[in-house]
Design a binder for these strands. Sequence first.
RNA 1: GCCGGAGUGGCGGAAUUGGCAGACGCAUCAGACUCAAAAUCUGACGAGGAAUUUCUUCGUAAGGGUUCGAUUCCCUUCUCCGGCACCA
Length: 867
Amino acid sequence: MNYNFTEIEVKWQKIWKEKKTFRVALEGQRKKFYCLEMFPYPSGSGLHVGHLKNYVPTDAFCRYKSMQGFNVLHPMGWDAFGQPAENEAMRRGRNPREMVPEYAASYRSTLIRAGCSYDWEREINSSDPEYYRWTQWIFLLLHRLGLAYRSTAPINWCPSCKTGLANEEVKDNRCWRCDTLVEKKPMPQWFFRITAYADRLLADLEKLDWSQGMKEMQRDWIGRSEGAEVDFAVAGSDVKIRVFTTRPDTLFGATFIVLAPEHPLVAQLTTATQQRKVNAYVRKAQGESEIDRLNATRSKTGVFTGTDAINPVNGERIPIWIADYVLMGYGTGAIMCVPGHDVRDFEFAKKFKLPIRQVVSRDGTTYNLESAEILEGIAVNSSEWSGLPTAEFKQTIGRWLEDKGIGRPTVNYRLRDWLISRQRYWGAPIPIVHCPACGEVPVPEAQLPVLLPDVENYHPSGTGESPLAAIPAFVHTTCPACHGPARRETDTMGGYACSSWYFLRFADPGNDGAFASRSALDYWLPVDVYTGGIEHARSHLLYARFWTKVLFDQGLLGFEEPFNLLRNQGSLLAFTPGRRPRSLEEKGGSDDKIVDWIVLKHDERDQVPADQVVWRWARMSKSKGNVVTPDDMTERYGADSLRVYEMFVAPFEDDVHWSEEGIQGSHRFVARVWRWLQAALALYRPDWRETLPRQETETERRVRRKLHQTVQKVGAQIETFQFNTAVAAIMELLNEMYACAPLDREELAPGPNPAVVSELAETLTLLMAPFAPHLAEEVWQQLGRCESVYRAPWPPFDPVVAAAEAVNVMIQVNGKIKDKVRVALDCDEETVKQEAMRSEKIKQLLSGRQVVKMIFIKNKMLSIVCK
RNA sequence: GCCGGAGUGGCGGAAUUGGCAGACGCAUCAGACUCAAAAUCUGACGAGGAAUUUCUUCGUAAGGGUUCGAUUCCCUUCUCCGGCACCA
């Protein structure tokens, strides 16, 4: 029978839907398995084959787990709130409220056509009031705990998106949505106090089965650094300047102090003679864009305040400067400068002719410093502490500072609080009311959700106020506390608020009395396997961990880490035509981020002469016009072939260069499986177990051994996310099957034992089920089964059948393989030696030489060393 | 600059604990089937050498080391990818 994949796939997708095959319910006595892919925001470009690089392998994983008897939770939903969706709606002149469900429907249909096993009854949409009601509820919880607060600080402002951004949303000083350079703008904004959890977020990384790189990124982002705070007295005053340093052991080398230009003490410390210079410098620093200030390569600038401080360890007077290389946002905004052992301080000291003193040495001697020497070593020029090794000195000086009451050991983090408010329409409104009498008042729980009003024009205002501020009916309200007139908060929450708890909602999506019931959470959570792109390393994954810990601390959850196992899929790259930039503007101006390649727009492709087209591999995206759609591939090769290709083409975490030749190869394989199984049907007998031959032929033994080995291998490799080698193992098996039971036209050539053929056919069908589920269902039915193969038990393997009975043992002479002997499995050393000595070649090599030693590794190797 | 990860045929990639390098697939070539083509099936396929169904040398970015034995462990160098980057 011909492999009519379209017919088979449509048929089974319909049956799965009708029979609700993938619906799951809490079954306390059954072991659960929760597999989750980061929920996407539904974009108008639809899904492309790159997205399936994630969804398809995890789907195979779920199907495998179901066959193993697990109660599998595999949900899907839409990260519908937030800038990506809103930006897209604006681009298309649509209202996101109408657009989102439409695009979600398109995603859903593509996923269904790819054969993905989602429980669609649990579909969630973060822009649904029934969902964001609980996002607001968690906001209020954080507020109650003092973990949500409003403060005015210079924030990252994207002039193109017209909203503030969290630090995590800024990369290379650009908005990560639109690549526009961000500005610093002081504005009252809402923050979540994630820094209060910095230590736990860092420590608990140890427990997680995440890639090394992923954990490292989180560690770097949290940026814990141990050091000490030291108070420097200001000469002739009782003012103190507190500095943070990671090297308190270099205090004797501190020859000046630098404050950030924004430091609150600057005005007070500036003397009349320096006033003009300092004022000018501070003004310049304020006016300067962040990008210039953070540019580490430009030369240092700064001015003297006119005042000195006293170095507490030696009583020396040292000058106080201000310079923009010190940031107000980190540590105390003031540093003690040890030019001998810090590159930046060294450069500053050289430029302004400040003294440089060596206080750490490689070997305890003093020598001339050509440049800053960053090292741990032996203290020198440090009075009675000279001679102490760095680590010891750090501890001693820490205690000394504490005793004197002028300092203490401290820990500092790079992580900043999470800026959550957005001056945008498309997000969950922040449930706070501003009352002239009572101040900031949380909206009572019973009044949730604070509905996002339906409006015609939702475009960002650009004034720094959300478009909601222009809707009087929304803004004007009464204070929940005193019932006087009050104003609603008009900022909305950034999209990451929604995605910080959605994995909890999937456990109990319909609950209208809580974000999820405790029993559902206890049963389904935490997530057993979580997958998604690496781009969320420092944002979503950090935020979600933070919220989970807060909910845990409130006794609302029984676990502290939401995603114990995380894997990041690679992306698909397409060969894409582009061209060189033509103007300076296209190059990105004078900026350091140089654009040297611009994707050709569709209408440009015919206009640009062929010799000017530059082809490159680029990530698939609709905007580049290089996408391959799953629907197209499904039509031409079938969903099962597409699935097999997505898994076989490369390891899960690797990027892939898309080619259509590859999918043809996978299609050949799937069709070959189909043909063999169709031929085998004629010989199939369900009672094959009872009629397996007692005396197997060599061929039967060989193919059955391969079969049982493959069952073992495929299971183990799915567990470890090695989908590519799992498919390869089935390919090997199929090759062996064709060799042992070849086809003659459309039938099995005469000869093979029906029981063995039956075992092969049945087991192969089950092995294929996670990868090519439609084909497997069809054959499973042809084999006379009524229940879905999704619930069929994963085949067991017999270790005795799988065991090789004879092995090749390599014979090495002086480290080189010279011969091999075929011996029984687990054959002992003596026998292998005797066999080896029978070999002419070995005999010849050993003649006249003295054997020094022999190393024997069972089933592998006999290594003979001789002189 | 600092911190991760990686480097294997023409290509994607595979190789338990250090033990037959190149599984599986793509591409290519040859053969079978066919009037022909497609599809399918079979075979060859790292590089070099020789007395060419066989034998042999080299070969996992480069160089060194440990070891009976290294793609695997250690050191040095190079390249690529990713993250951070005036964070005191």
